[in-house]
Each structure stands twice: as C-alpha cells, then as structure tokens.
C-alpha cells in the first residue's frame, strides 16, 4: 500500500493495480464468442481505463453477461484478444488463468458464498490458499474489509443467517480480499428484494469513489446514471452505443437504444 498522488492511496483498504492512472486496464480487441452455432459476441472492441466505472446495459440475450464472463475466463472466446492489467488471457494455461483471476474479481447475481464456511472464513479462504497470506495478517485484512462493507460484527456468522443484501456485501468483501485491479459485477442486485438493493449499491458507489475500476452489467439505470463514467449499450452481440450517461440516457441516437429505454418505463 504505497503513498502517492492517486486517490486509492488515501484509502488504505484498496491496493493500487499495476496500470497507471488513466491508462487502459482492460483491453478487448475484436472479441468473438459462440455457443455452438450461435454467435453471441460478434466482435467487441473495448478499452476500460483505470479508475473508470463502466455500466453495461441491454436486453437479455444481448451478450452482456457473456462479455463479463469472458473477461475473467469463465467463458472461453474463439477470436480476438483480451488483456487485463497487463496480463493477456491465455485459456490453455491454468497458471496464466489463475494469475489473471488474481487481478479480476467477480460478484455474482446469486452471491455464491461458500455455505459451509463462516463469513470471515469465506473472505479469508482465497488469500490464504492463493496468496499464502499469514493467518494474523489475513484475519486483520478480512475484518477491515468487512468493516468497509458495514458487516464487521458478522465475522463469525454463517451465510444462511444473513439477508440477501448482507450476503452480497460479504461477496464484495471476499472479492476485494484478493486485491483485484478490476471488479466485474454481473447484475449483482437483480436477485435482491428492493429494500436491500440500496445497501449494496452504496458499497459499490463508495468503491467507485475510492478509484476502483468497475465493469457492471446492471438494470439499475438510476444508479448507472449517477455513478458510471461511461455507459455501454449492447445489442445482439455488439457494442451498439457508448458514451457518458447523460448522452446515453438523455439523447439516445439509435432506434434500438430508444426502444430499449422506453421499454424500461413500462
């Protein structure tokens, strides 16, 4: 945790990535992906800058989640290239994949906490096994992160004792424990009761303020409008429109985006 001019240094919780501020931390070039005969991503070009918050919106089936899952290798792609924080994505090498995944964290729609481990152990597992963190250091960091997401007192609780919003916040802490450069959020509030959505979004917003690079597939348009630096509208496997929230939401150019936005208000 070095001192420096970048904003993340003022908050001791986030570890700065290797990429410089303002440089692309995720580079996607001509990415194509098919499921069998069905081509789902038809050539994606995308650069995400360090510290940028990008919201990805679009109809279901447009390829949003697939794109996200390609970035951390949960899905393999057939053509194109993908680099994260200086590391290229090489599917054949399990070692390379593990190194990549230490730089990219993912939060899932269905939380996917480990039900047989307590909250604290959920957060500490990967740093212990992968980064070989020492136990006292590991526990201190875990408590710090849980405090960051507002759940310090739940350290010894079991996941099934928590509400959905609490579980998702634990999932965020768990991902942060690996000091990722980028966080991928795959519809992380879609499975939550409405009154629990806010607490999760507040955590995400504070991460954005602290300079975390975020790539979020979301249906929370209000949140995207408020927090995102850039919004990407995907349609049928392509980046259809891209731009700052005001222009995407306020001045949609293409008929598909117009139709999508109007369908949200029904």
């Amino acid at each position: 945790m070095s001192a420096g001019a970048d904003p993340s240094a003022t908050n001791p919780v986030l570890v700065p990535p290797h990429t410089e501020v303002g440089a692309p931390i995720v580079r996607i070039t001509a990415l194509r992906k098919s499921f069998g005969d069905n081509e789902v991503l038809k050539g994606i070009d995308l650069d995400v800058m360090r510290g940028e918050v990008v919201a990805v919106i679009g109809k279901s089936g447009s390829g949003k989640s697939t794109l996200l899952r390609c970035i951390n290798g949960l899905e393999a792609f057939q053509e194109g290239s993908l680099t994260v924080d200086g590391k290229p994505l090489l599917h054949e090498s399990a070692q390379a994949m593990r190194e990549l995944r230490q730089r990219v964290g993912m939060i899932f729609q269905s939380f996917n906490l480990f039900p047989h481990l307590s909250v604290g152990r959920n957060v500490m597992l990967a740093p212990r096994l992968v980064k070989k963190r020492r136990p006292d250091e590991n526990e201190a960091r875990a408590r710090q992160l849980l405090d960051r997401v507002g759940l310090a007192e739940k350290f010894d609780a079991m996941p099934d004792q928590l509400s959905g919003g609490q579980q998702q916040r634990v999932a965020i802490a768990r991902a942060l424990a690996m000091d990722p450069a980028v966080l991928l959020c795959d519809e992380i509030t879609s499975a939550l009761d409405p009154e629990l959505v806010g607490e999760v979004l507040r955590v995400v917003e504070s991460l954005a303020e602290d300079g975390m690079t975020l790539l979020m597939v979301t249906h929370e348009m209000g949140f995207a409008r408020k927090v995102a630096d850039r919004v990407i509208f995907m349609h049928q496997g392509r980046v259809h429109e891209s731009g700052p929230p005001d222009s995407i939401f306020g001045a949609p150019r293409t008929p598909e985006l117009k139709q999508f936005l109007s369908s949200l208000h029904e």
């Binding site: 951390n72 399990a94 593990r98 190194e99 996917n112 906490l113 096994l129």
Partner: peptide, 26 residues
C-alpha cells in the same frame, strides 16, 4: 451448484483447491 465452482475459480483457486476446500465439503 455450478456457482460454487465459478466463484472459487474467480477467486483464483486451482482445481485441487476448489475440490478440497469448496466442492467436496459440500
């Protein structure tokens, strides 16, 4: 659930670690 495999993979756990610490206990 497959999500357990995916979450542990996303946390950079290797196959053996996924089995031993996440999947087999469940």
């Amino acid at each position: 659930p497959r999500g357990q495999w995916e979450a542990s993979a996303s946390l950079a756990l290797g196959f053996g670690q996924q089995l031993a610490h996440v999947v087999l206990p469940q």
